[in-house]
Design a protein around this nucleic acid. Structure first.
Length: 422
RNA sequence: GUGGGCGUAGCCAAGUGGUCCAAGGCGCCAGGUUGUGGCCCUGGAGAUCGAGGGUUCAAAUCCCUCCGCUCACCCCA
């Protein structure tokens, strides 16, 4: 008669991960852990919120992420806090805070965590999403760059995703990038009138971003624009060449994308993405790069680092698109049904005993006929049902029904346990 | 922040001014004789037709406002 009207709904851009979809999450999390640990990475979890300054300093003033996408609030003590807006800066903060530079370098870390960004939601983009990420801190060797890219690649192919492409680029370091940016601005300065309105702003604020504008006119301009890899200093050039060599040695096919620049300020040298075959908003499923200046920016000594973040929701989207199935989760193995109050008590005890033996068991719903209870067992998908009624109570036995075969037998508790454990 | 699409029961969905106090399907609940499932059959519960206002003799159907969802842009995972 009366309608249930929810007073609240989940906040915009968030999602409840219902039992029916948990199999994806379990599957991806365990695969991520397996791959990461196979590469020698160890798990780290950082708080959901951090000092707001961490993201401002780490990710950088002038980035969209910091300027318009953070969830920032003041707590009751007056501290400014920000919900985790990305994974790298918190991990670097923890590296510093716990003196991990005293550990054997590089320190290899991974995480599987939630990220918060105030954005308009759309396919593959949410205000709360989850990332699997890794960071290798303390070794500037391009071998580590290759390792990080390979790890991401192995994860994706390990879960059955196909037709992904690796995009790489080098945007130089703090020595050679200014020179390149100068060239870039010279190039665009001569063609300024042709730029779109957004790009006119980019020209002033963040010229690198001119390269990845997708508007027709701007695409034509960026196609002819100078390439960052043609302006690398000696060290960056060597790093870049060795990386390409290592990736090839690993048999990883990659695409050099001169327009790949990424939106966070901390990147140096290597930047990369792994992209799914379909165009669209979920352009990158993995994004990452080297951040050799970040630790220092956060107050540490100069320390190289590289890592990536991978969007779990986007992975799931692609699993669905490519029709890849993931293992189902098991329900209870047996349902204990009963007839009458006396039997109910026995059923409760029996279910408890079975669980203590490591057998997953659930009690039949109350107030149902045997027929109703059997229907219930069928829809739960339990392999067995146990029936306790007056007859069984008197005889001290149980009925064990094999739901698959549709056959049942009278058995003692010991026999039942043995069969269920087999 | 900008632009497009959409909003009928838990889910899918018919219906575009009167015969709709709203069809159908899935799911849910109960029965199909007395202690037993899957198919099938029967019955049942469940909808202030997103909310508010307006037009009209009459609105789920037309208009306005708001809210929500969704897709795209920006940007990102």
């Amino acid at each position: 008669m009366k309608r249930e009207t929810p007073l609240y709904r989940g906040p915009r851009g968030t999602a409840d991960l219902l039992p029916s979809e948990q199999k994806f999450w379990r599957y991806l999390e365990s695969n991520a852990e397996n791959v990461a640990e196979r590469f020698g990475y160890r798990r780290i979890d950082t708080p959901v919120f951090e000092d707001s300054g961490l993201f401002v300093r780490g990710v950088g003033q002038g980035t969209d992420l910091v300027e318009k996408e953070t969830y920032t609030f003041q707590d009751r003590g007056g501290d400014m806090l920000t919900l985790r807006a990305e994974g790298t800066a918190p991990v670097c903060r923890a590296y510093l805070e716990h003196g991990m530079h005293n550990l054997v370098q590089p320190v290899r870390l991974y995480y599987f965590t939630s990220i918060y960004r105030y954005e308009r939601p759309q396919a593959g983009r949410y205000r709360e999403h989850h990332q699997f990420g890794i960071e290798a801190i303390g070794d500037g060797n391009p071998a580590v760059d290759a390792e990080v890219i390979e790890l991401g690649w192995r994860f994706l192919s390990g879960i059955g995703l196909q037709k992904f492409t690796i995009q790489v680029n080098s945007i130089g370091d703090f020595n050679c990038r200014p020179t390149y940016l100068g060239e870039l601005k010279d190039y665009y300065a001569k063609r300024r009138g042709l730029l779109c309105d957004d790009c006119k702003v980019r020209f002033e604020r963040n010229p690198l971003r001119l390269l990845d504008c997708k508007k027709e006119n701007c695409l034509a301009l960026s196609a002819e624009a100078p390439h960052s890899i043609d302006h690398l200093c000696g060290e960056c050039q060597e790093h870049w060449d060795r990386l390409k060599g290592y990736l090839s040695a690993l048999g990883l096919l990659f695409n050099i994308d001169h327009h790949l620049v990424r939106g966070l300020n901390y990147y140096t040298r290597t930047v990369f993405e792994i992209q799914p075959p379909v165009e669209g908003s979920q352009s990158a499923i993995i994004g990452g790069g080297r951040y050799d200046g970040l630790i220092q920016e956060l107050g540490g000594r100069p320390t190289p680092g590289i890592g990536f973040g991978m969007g779990i929701e986007r992975v799931i989207l692609n699993l669905r698109e490519q029709g890849i199935s993931v293992p189902d989760q098991d329900g209870p193995k047996v349902m204990v049904s009963y007839i009458g109050d006396a039997a109910c008590k026995e059923a409760i005890k029996l279910a408890s005993q079975l669980r203590q033996e490591g057998i997953s068991a659930t009690l039949a719903p109350s107030g149902k006929s045997i027929k109703g209870q059997m229907r219930h067992a069928f829809s739960l998908g339990t392999a067995y049902a146990i029936i306790i009624g007056d007859n069984e109570l008197q005889k001290g036995t149980l009925i064990l029904r094999d739901m698959g075969k549709g056959e049942q037998q009278e058995a003692t508790l010991a026999q039942v346990k043995q069969i269920l454990q087999g």
